[in-house]
Design a protein around this nucleic acid. Structure first.
Lengths: 140, 140
DNA sequence: GTATAATCGAAAACGATTTTCAATAAAGGT
DNA sequence: ACCTTTATTGAAAATCGTTTTCGATTATAC
């Protein structure tokens, strides 16, 4: 049983632990910003030079289905991945350097209730992303 | 000067008013849900049968840059377009039939302030989408 | 160690979007 | 109304990201 929690979860769902999956996992775990499949590919080949791009796509798909990573949506594109938050966490993105920070807690229940009454919808889920400038980009 | 506000805005920014732009504009104005470029293409050709898909892409790009339409982000894809909201409006999507409703007003300032303090970010903008079931899909 | 099936990488296929370019047509001037 | 100019168009080709196919590899169980 691997000590790394992501690898443990992969294994516990019947997956084999391969060099490719270790490399992609390490890249995604240590990333400070959302990465596209090609960016993951470039970074992960430093750990496993034989890695193919197809395997990156497949591994990202698997990690996403296990909710270990999530998609980040930018204005034009939504194919970048970031480690998933826990519970009610949301994403805060720096518009300048791309750094991604997860923050937790929101209290939007009152809003949902009001919107539900006004529209007749039954609100099932929500999705919130904030954009701004991180401390370094503001001061640097 | 055209009576239609979208066409008027197109013209006032130096654009020519063509059959293609009229067709795409009418489709987007009357759409009740977000449409992909190909869906716009299919709908708009009923008004202008000679319309090409390339022109649809170009017209959507123009309408988006004028903030007359906006992108709607689904979990896997973010290439569908919907008429833009005004001011602080956000999108509410029915998970079953795709119907899109704009609702306005939010009071997230307190949340932004707290997150800004916790993270050091200067919050610039936000993006909120709600998902649920519309009245018809709940009861029907 | 061996067997077995999951996983892999490379190549090919695919689909959505963008570019190219000659033809068309909207808008302004006459 | 009729040119003239030039933005705009549609079709074809190019491009790019993603997915599928398939034989080779390799993690895991025995």
């Amino acid at each position: 049983m691997p000590s790394d929690p992501w690898l443990a979860q992969l294994q516990s769902t019947g997956c084999r632990l391969t060099a490719a999956r270790r490399a992609v996992t390490e890249v995604m775990q240590s990333a400070e910003r959302a990465l596209t499949p090609v960016e993951v590919y470039d970074a992960a080949r430093k750990r496993d030079p034989r890695l193919g791009l197809v395997t990156v796509y497949r591994t990202l798909e698997k990690l996403e289905s296990l909710r270990l990573i999530q998609r980040v949506h930018h204005s034009q594109e939504c194919q970048a991945f970031l480690k998933a938050g826990e519970g009610h966490q949301h994403i805060l993105l720096c518009e300048r350097c791309g750094r991604a920070v997860l923050f937790d807690g929101d209290n939007l229940e009152a809003l949902f209730e009001r919107v539900g009454e006004q529209t007749g919808f039954e609100i099932k889920s929500h999705w919130l992303q904030l954009y701004g400038l991180c401390e370094e980009c503001r001061t640097g």
